[in-house]
Design a protein around this nucleic acid. Structure first.
Lengths: 140, 140
DNA sequence: CTAGTTGCAAAAGATTTGCAGACGT
DNA sequence: ACGTCTGCAAATCTTTTGCAACTAG
């Protein structure tokens, strides 16, 4: 039994071919962040027989099971409104280069703790957060 | 000549009825953040004759002219994937209550400056950023 | 006058859903 | 065997676009 198999079991999901394929792809991809369509194409190109609808359904289940995280990197200079997914690892934020599309992950304790304080000051507790810094190569 | 009229002129946009209506609505709304559809309905209910397509077009122009900002508050607990717009005032971030939908704005210098540093450390300069904290009323 | 705008209807793009058949346990 | 899952096609939903008529400057 592979690692992915037990991850799926733990999430209460039957271990099916499509689910294993998608989970493995996300865990091994260089890119780390993929749209539903990119995942679909990658698997089809790889010879798998899978439907785009299934990719969406599986990703939604993975998101609910906290196996993956969904992002909507829009805003910056206004890229397409398409969600992308990544394996839900440690807590980190993203920096997206608006010129190259490169995505850099980072984690900053100072920022994290300020967020906690701010929420508390307003009588809330944090459920989740999303920080995306849209950047451009520095032209020093 | 009203305040809004000169704002439009300054942005290089002809002063038309739809543009004035939308700008005024966004400037006076209690809600501060509205989707294209909410703006459309509000104006129609208010007796204006306007098309939804025009609302989208005008909002896109306003965004380009930096008169408004577009947000995609998704993620948290997964609300609909619909953009919302607000007047582009000072630099601030958002806290969205996942239970009530309430949106609180805030600005934190510590967070802002850490972002600058982080971008610089990676050889980038900030173009824009988006921070949304999804929260819930604290149940102490 | 004339380029920029608008409303409507149709198009596009992303994601979801109904359903009959296939599959994991 | 049984309830879950899948692929396909059709449906939904938000946002965009083509176009002829309209209007601000």
């Amino acid at each position: 039994m592979t690692e992915e198999t037990s991850e799926l079991r733990k999430a209460g999901l039957k271990v099916t071919h499509p689910r294993l394929q998608i989970l493995r792809l996300l865990e091994t991809t260089e890119q780390k962040h993929m749209t539903a369509d990119e995942i679909y194409r990658a698997l089809v190109d790889q010879g798998e027989e899978i439907g785009l609808a299934t990719v969406y359904r599986v990703l939604a289940q993975f998101e609910a099971a906290q196996l993956v995280r969904k992002h909507m990197f829009d805003g910056g200079t206004g890229r397409p409104q398409q969600a992308c997914y990544e394996i839900d690892e440690e807590d980190h934020d993203h920096m997206v280069c608006v010129e190259t599309g490169e995505v850099v992950e980072f984690h900053d304790e100072a920022i994290e703790s300020r967020q906690e304080e701010i929420a508390r000051e307003h009588g809330f507790e944090i459920v989740d957060h999303s920080l995306v810094i849209y950047v451009r190569p520095r032209k020093n």
